[in-house]
């Protein structure tokens, strides 16, 4: 019985490669219309999970439904209901943007008029007849997103969509994702850019060594490791930065002295990032 409220339901997914465990009992639910982040360092099992959910790889055990289709037994139907943006810019570079999309329109049996629609939606219409090899990385990424949207998918998988893009292009792609989210698209986003996940996702799962080690809204995850309420971070005029506990007498005196001497430049509550959450949970940084 397909679940229309849940776009993705994964239950105890496992995947091993030659005895090495890549995904180790992952379970989660993504609600329809939600932007769900799947975060973790390289090798954590993000790509293996996305490959299982997009019918590229069979799980060793466990089950999952995506857009109402079982990922093992209903692969053909599943493929028509999902769109996938890969971490590699995998497009036919000798072909034009329009030719690329027309090819996929034929595969998905989508009317040619839809090609023009997505070209315009991704602001590529004026360059549609140029070979893709001449495009900037940002334009190529927009074309890949256009390809993924061509057949009106119910769930959009985005695998590291801003990796390798310069900050301006990255911001542009994040803007596009935010637009799609506002239109009610269910988005499954894998990234190792924590700020990106924080900005775009309603909930995130943090994955490490093939397991989900935390799953919640970014704000709630950050609150779990939030510093004590009396903590402040101060910066003095000589460039020194320090964390002070306002309920401890020595720190109180230090702060008063700096104020009186006019040395206090900045004072604010400590900010916690999702990366801090990851470090707190695993004891190491995302890039290690």
């Amino acid at each position: 019985m397909p679940d229309i409220e849940h776009a993705i339901m994964a239950k105890d997914l496992h995947r091993t490669y030659n005895g090495r465990v890549a995904v180790d009992g992952i379970s989660f639910v993504v609600k329809a219309g939600e932007v769900f982040g799947f975060l973790g360092p390289n090798g954590a099992g993000k790509t293996t999970t996305i490959r299982m959910l997009t019918a590229q790889l069979r799980p060793t055990s466990g089950t999952a439904q995506v857009a109402g289709c079982d990922i093992v037994t209903q692969r053909p139907d599943l493929k028509t209901r999902i769109g996938v943006v890969f971490e590699d810019q995998n497009i036919y570079e000798r072909m034009t943007a329009r030719e690329n999309l027309m090819f996929y329109a034929q595969l998905y049996r989508v009317k040619p008029v839809r090609v023009q629609e997505v070209l315009e939606q991704m602001r590529l219409a004026d360059r549609a007849n140029e070979p893709v090899g001449r495009f900037s990385n940002g334009m190529k990424q927009r074309l890949i997103i256009a390809r993924a949207l061509l057949h009106h998918p119910r769930v959009l998988f985005l695998d590291e969509p801003t990796r390798g893009l310069d900050p301006v292009m990255g911001r542009e792609i994040r803007g596009l994702i935010a637009d799609l989210a506002r239109q009610g698209m269910t988005i499954f986003l894998t990234t190792h850019y924590m700020e990106e996940a924080d900005q775009l996702c309603q909930r995130v799962a943090i994955v490490d060594q093939g397991q989900i080690i935390a799953l919640d809204a970014p704000a709630r995850l950050k609150r779990q490791i939030a510093p004590q309420d009396d903590q402040v971070v101060v910066t003095t005029s000589d460039g020194q930065s320090d964390t002070l506990h306002l309920q401890q007498a020595p720190d109180q005196q230090k702060l008063v002295a700096w104020i009186q001497q006019g040395q206090l430049v900045d004072i604010h509550s400590p900010t916690v990032t999702l990366e801090d959450v990851f470090i707190q949970l695993t004891g190491r940084s995302l890039n290690s």
Binding site: T54, A55, Q56, P76, K79, T80, I82, V84, F86, D88, N90, I91, Y92, E93, Y104, L107, Y108, R109, R147
Partner: peptide, 14 residues
């Protein structure tokens, strides 16, 4: 090599 095969594999083409 260009990893376009991945895009084909998630399309209706088997």
């Amino acid at each position: 090599e260009r990893r376009t095969l991945l895009a084909l594999q998630v399309s209706p083409a088997g």
